[in-house]
Amino acid sequence: MSVKSATMLKTTYREAVREAIRDAMRRDDRVFLMGEDVGKYGGCYAVSLGLLEEFGPERIRDTPLSEAAFVGAGIGAALGGMRPIVEVMTVNFSLLALDQIVNTAATILHMSGGQFNVPLVIRMATGAGRQLAAQHSHSLEGWYAHIPGIKVLAPATLEDARGMLWAAIEDPDPVLIFEHAMLYGQEGELAEDVAAVDIDKAVIRRAGSDVSLITYGGTFYKTMQAAAELAKDGIEAEVIDLRSLRPLDNGTILDSVRRTHRAVIIDEGWRSGSLAAEVSARITEGAFYELDAPVARVCSAEVPMPYAKHLEEAAIPQLPGIVAAAREVLGTHV
């Protein structure tokens, strides 16, 4: 992100997303927001609080509780020349719109022989940590990364929460943005006049030479903490924030692993068939002789997300598990 001014504002991830929506609405009349409770209630996670008052009910639209209907309507609006931002309350509810996403949004460009793009943005909360149990807490980003025809973004930082939306709106094809529910309260500073960020590249958030820790979204800060923890013992971990889950930035991932020779992937999705498996397979394919240890994965336990707090905590990647996985690959030589 280009920082043009020294004026920094204290803000939160939630406010950064809201500001991104507000900015997009002001810039382009074709942009509107649609979803369950996004209007009068201000959004389930209070992201759109105040936007109804500012932009009115034509552009901040409360929808019925039908994900298939309002995602489908978003596709129609995009085809009709608008630039809709559709909010799905949580990724778990997006299953009800999966046919619209997989069989319609993702395929119209292809099936129309390139005649129709679908410039649709779908935002949704994802992830565990709020004791919302097995139907509101999963991380299904890896699923969506399997679907040709869409892009999948996972902003972890305030700067990406603020900057990715405009880039996504400008993209001619459907873009899904996953906002981890535990990130909304994250505090930090942002430049007053921030610009759009790129949505194609992973970013090295912390440079290091001993091991590559590769993550995204909800596990990003835990991974940064793990790197700090490892540094106390003189281990220099590099932290890669994938940011874009589809397409994946092979170059950044492989360059890093070729330098560090070791990698751990941290992914809040379930392990089997995870995005982490894809990243692991690509590393082994692309950097086989450079690897000094097998690529390790830290993923969620393969159970529906528990309600009980201690079980929920045990089910998802946590700091000690990330640190232990890094130490294990550092102690392995092949």
Binding site: W143, A145, H146, A277, E278
Partner: peptide, 19 residues
């Protein structure tokens, strides 16, 4: 489709276990 295909899981597991 290739990306995040189930077979990536098999590939990743093989590399993890018997690199």
């Amino acid at each position: 489709p290739r990306t995040a295909n189930f077979i990536s899981e098999v590939a990743a597991t093989i590399s993890e276990e018997i690199l």
